[in-house]
């Protein structure tokens, strides 16, 4: 399985990639939407993209919109990563085409749960 982590926080990129690679997921990361799209174009598709909401240059919502307007990435699952203060945006993200959302802070279980929800991890996978 391959995952793309898009977040402007180095800490969060490392944290997410750390969890994912621990399960054997091959992880790529980008620090904003624009870079994320570039990586996709070069190395896509991925099985799942975990995208932060608030990023400079190209924000999460814009990135999701862009992804969903491109048929190449149809099969890719998208998880929107937000904080509770961005609660109101979750609906917008889902409307734009995100499959699920992940609220910060989250732990290992929270991440597994969401990945299972989008059908990427089976119960025994972890």
């Amino acid at each position: 399985m391959r995952a793309l982590v898009v977040d402007d926080s180095r800490f969060l990129r490392d944290y997410l990639c750390g969890l994912l690679t621990g399960w054997g997921v091959v992880c790529s990361s980008a620090e904003n939407g624009e870079q994320g799209l570039r990586i996709l174009a070069d190395a896509g598709p991925f099985d799942v993209a975990l995208i932060d909401w608030n990023m400079p240059v190209l924000g999460g919502l814009e990135m999701v919109r862009s992804l969903r307007s491109d048929r190449r990435w149809n099969g890719m699952k998208i998880l929107m990563v937000t904080t509770e203060s961005e609660n109101g945006f979750i609906a917008a993200a889902l409307a734009a085409g995100a499959d699920e959302y992940l609220m910060k802070p989250f732990d290992e279980e929270g991440l597994v749960e969401k990945l299972q929800l989008v059908g990427l991890l089976t119960d025994g996978a972890k």
């Binding site: 402007d8 926080s9 800490f11 969060l12 944290y15 608030n54 990023m55 400079p56 904080t83 203060s85 910060k104 802070p105 989250f106």
Partner: peptide, 14 residues
């Protein structure tokens, strides 16, 4: 400025 504080808040919970 918002993003600076936002990022701290977002990560500190972890």
């Amino acid at each position: 400025i918002f993003r600076s504080v936002h990022t701290i808040k977002g990560t500190t919970g972890f």
